[in-house]
């Protein structure tokens, strides 16, 4: 999960005022990550990128970092619910 988030953050930071495309390429996996958030507000530390299947029992909240970056760059509240969900359970 750390590798995935770092990779997506890199794509977001490639976006310029003229070209948002790299950031928008990160949006689809970010949307999928929202749907993979657990009831405990966290995510599997390792996942199968093709199926989303958890490959470890350890949990992480690393995607919150990506969501905050996307919200800041898009001037958006799109990921607020997912961020709040992680934070409300004391993990943010």
């Amino acid at each position: 999960m750390n590798w995935l988030v770092e990779h997506l953050e890199y794509m977001v930071r490639l976006a310029t005022d003229a070209d948002y495309t790299p950031m928008q390429r990160a949006l689809h996996p970010a949307h999928i990550l929202v749907t993979l958030q657990g009831a405990d507000g966290s995510w599997p530390a390792r996942i199968n990128l093709m199926t989303g299947e958890a490959l470890a029992t350890e949990r992480t909240i690393t995607p919150v970092r990506l969501f905050r970056l996307l919200q800041q760059r898009l001037s958006s509240s799109e990921f607020s619910v997912a961020i709040t969900h992680a934070e409300s359970l004391g993990k943010g």
Binding site: T35, L36, Q37, A39, G41, V81, A82, H85
Partner: peptide
Amino acid sequence: VDTTSPGHNPDDFDSAYNQVVQS
């Protein structure tokens, strides 16, 4: 309105209502 995604509570009336009102 984002309450129906997995891991979230689709029966959280207040969360869904407040998301709309706040926005």
